[in-house]
Design a binder for these strands. Structure first.
Lengths: 181, 181
DNA sequence: CCCGGCTATTCCTAACTGGAACAGTATGCT
DNA sequence: AGCATACTGTTCCAGTTAGGAATAGCCGGG
């Protein structure tokens, strides 16, 4: 029955619910910006090309409606979620198969070969990861602050807190490993 | 100069250093088993077909040597890292940009839409994630125990500890979110 | 008016997944 | 010994996901 879409498809659909629910939908470009701002913290930031192919797919299932805007010389498309799309999202939320998170951690991968690097280089690597982590945390903090404690966005706020906790856990792991060298 | 390989290529190369360093190399099949046991905790567990294509690629760069075993009726190939391969791995460790970790978190993604699910269903989802987390943690604990506190595997042990810390952080986040519902 | 940066989309290629198909090997049972 | 079964090992194919570059209109300031 329900066509099996990829998780990223549903992620985009959920962006259309959260960010594009009120007005007349978002362009692929805008969707990319929303994804870069929030989705990337707990999923991926899909490539532009990927977003457009997913939108085509969603469109073919009538889960999104594509409104062409031909006012200028260029026709741009605004995508909005349809009732069928909301239904599909609902039934996906209810399915009990919850996949386990996947962590692709290049730093841990390199740390595995620490003996080929030497303690100094390992320390330098951890330092630069810590810096990147601080920067990334600040970006997420900004998102978190924008959410505030409004009831309407209580769940997104919880997800943001989750991300912050992850960053903090990473930071303290870095400290512990550095001390162990 | 250095042909740019994917991170997964280097990950497989590092498995050949760690697991296949002493004897005469590993088969693609064995490599898959090693990957399933350790690599998946901080990177991915590549599909068999992917492993073989990467081995072909590594072979074409002479970073691995393919020894054909024709003793039985079937010829199997054992792959061992070459000095050139070690060099490539070294220079990857030293030179390349350290990408930021990517976390693909289906549970967080669904939690985002918690208001479409209702508190009970959210709780159920968190419960089942917690269970999966406990199981996964146990598997990693087993790996960690096998490593012990031998100096030779001090770095892999640190990576395993990192993974355990991540699981613990996830568990406590689940608790906190459940309390907030 | 033209230059640079933003908006918007498309195309091409590479990375990666999953499944099926095929075949040899080791084991344990009757 | 014969046989079933599970494990080992490899290849092929079809599809999905991802990244980069190319293209082009839009929009403000000097």
């Amino acid at each position: 029955m329900a066509p099996s879409l990829s998780t990223t498809s549903y992620a985009l659909l959920s962006l259309l619910v959260i960010d594009g629910g009120t007005d007349e939908g978002l362009t692929g470009y805008e969707l990319k910006q929303r994804a870069d701002r929030t989705l990337r913290f707990y999923w991926v930031s899909p490539a532009m090309s990927h977003i457009y192919t997913e939108l085509d797919r969603l469109s073919s299932h009538a889960f999104v409606r594509a409104d062409e805007d031909t006012t200028g010389k260029r026709t741009t498309k605004h995508f909005a979620i349809t009732p069928a799309g909301r239904e599909a999202l609902q039934s996906w939320l209810h399915t009990s198969e919850h996949e386990f998170p996947v962590l692709k951690h290049p730093i841990a991968l390199r740390l595995m070969l620490g003996s080929m690097m030497g303690a100094d280089e390992v320390r330098a690597m951890l330092d630069s990861y810590e810096e990147a982590l601080v920067a990334r945390r600040r970006e997420l903090e900004a998102v978190r602050e924008m959410l505030g404690d409004r009831d309407a966005v209580a769940y997104p706020a919880r997800v943001a807190d989750w991300g912050l906790a992850f960053f903090d856990s990473e930071a303290s792991t870095i400290d512990r490993i550095r001390d162990s060298l």
